[in-house]
Design a protein around this nucleic acid. Structure first.
Lengths: 187, 187
DNA sequence: ATCATTTATTGACTTTGGTCAACGAAAAGT
DNA sequence: ACTTTTCGTTGACCAAAGTCAATAAATGAT
C-alpha cells in the first residue's frame, strides 16, 4: 500500500490526513488465477491498485478474444470506460496470476473528490496519464506494422514477454498466433 | 463563446464568476486555410476551442503523413500529449478550413485550476472524455478491419466524410487512398 | 475559360497477414 | 509417470491491403 502512496506522491502532494482518508476507502481483496474481476455486462464501479498478480483485459468479438491490456503489480486495474460512463462493461478482466488488489469504489472516490481538492487533482492527473497511455498505443496501431509493434514491445516491456503466453501477446498486438510465430522466426 | 460555456455546463456547474475568470483567459485568434496552429518540434502550451473551421492533426512517418484526428467547430484543438507532458510535439496541427478559435494558455489554465475547484473538476472531466474518445478509436483499430472502420465512420460522422478529401480519410483510417477507393467501389 | 495541379479511380502485380491442418513440445491434471 | 490438453511452429494456400503506373475527374490559379 506504501507503493500506492509513493505513486500518488509523484503526481501531487497529499497530506497525511488526505492519504489516511483515501486509505480508509481501500479494500484489500485476493483473486485466484482464472477468476474474473469483472465480467461482460457488469458495470465497473471500482478502480483497483494491483499489489501482486497479473490481469488481462479483453472482450469477445465474433467468438474471438481480443486482448486490449495487461495489468501488473503497480498498475491500476479497472474498466475505466465503464467506470466513467457507468455503462455495462463489454470487457472481461481475468486473473492470469494469483492477485492481491486494493479496491476503491466509485462512490467513495467521488466523495473523496468532494472532500479533498488534492484528491480531485489526483483524479485529473490519473485521467491524464491514462489518456497518454492509450493515445500512445493508438499511435502504434495507426503508424506501425505488426512486426514493428512487436519489436517495440520487446524493447519497452520485456517483462510482459516473459510472463504472458505468446498467443495472448499476439492478440494484444492485433495479429494471429501463427503470424507472431512467423515474425519471431524471420530472424 | 456561448457554445463553450454550454459545453462546460454539461460537464459541471460553473458560477458566473468562475466562467468570467475562465473567459478572461480566452484569446480569440483567426487562422487562414493551410496555416499551422502547431508545428513539429514546438511545445503545445495551449488548449483551444474551435469556434469555426476545420483542422487536421498529423505527423510524418517515413515521409508519409499519418492523420490522427480532425477537429471541427465545437471541438477542442490541441496536442494534448505535448500539452500535458510539456515535451515537443511530434505532430502538426494544420488548418483545412479558415478558422477562428479561443485559446487558453497552459499557464492560465493551471492558475485557474488553483483558483477554482470547479475548473479543476472541469479539467478532470475533459481529460476523462478525451480518454474515452481515444480508447474507442484504439478499440476500432484493434478489433475492426479497414472496411468496418470505414462504414463505422460513415454511420457516425457523415459530416466528416463531406468536408474532408478522401485521401485524408484514408490516412485517418490507416489505409492507402487506393484501398479506400476500392472499399467504396465494392458497393 | 483555359491550363495546371491535385485527387480519385482502375488495372496488374507484390507483399503481408489470415486460414486450415498437421505435428511436436510443454504444461496441467490425475 | 502417464495421459490429456494447450501451446507454438511450420507448410500450403487464400484474401486483403500495398505498390506502381496510367488515366480520368475535380479543383485551383491565372
Amino acid at each position: 500500500m506504501q507503493q500506492l502512496r509513493s505513486y500518488f506522491s509523484k503526481l501531487t502532494k497529499l497530506t497525511d490526513k488526505e492519504w489516511a482518508d483515501y486509505a480508509d476507502c481501500l479494500v484489500k481483496e485476493s483473486y485466484p488465477k482464472k477468476s474474473f474481476l469483472l465480467e461482460e455486462g457488469g458495470a465497473c464501479d471500482f478502480i483497483a491498485f494491483v499489489e501482486e498478480g497479473v490481469f488481462r483485459f479483453y472482450h469477445e468479438v465474433e467468438g474471438e478474444e481480443k486482448i486490449t491490456a495487461f495489468f501488473f503489480s503497480g498498475d491500476f486495474v479497472t474498466n475505466y470506460r465503464s467506470f466513467l460512463t457507468g455503462g455495462p462493461s463489454e470487457h472481461y478482466i481475468q486473473v492470469l496470476q494469483d492477485a492481491t488488489i486494493y479496491k476503491i469504489s466509485k462512490k467513495d472516490l467521488h466523495e473523496l473528490y468532494n472532500k479533498h481538492r488534492s484528491i480531485e487533482r489526483l483524479g485529473r492527473l490519473i485521467a491524464e496519464n491514462l489518456y497518454l497511455m492509450v493515445a500512445k498505443r493508438l499511435d502504434a496501431f495507426h503508424s506501425s506494422s505488426p512486426e514493428e509493434r512487436y519489436y517495440e514491445l520487446v524493447n519497452r516491456n520485456s517483462k510482459l514477454l516473459q510472463e504472458i503466453p505468446q498467443y495472448m501477446i499476439a492478440s494484444y498486438l492485433g495479429i494471429k498466433p501463427e503470424t507472431l510465430s512467423r515474425i519471431r522466426a524471420r530472424k
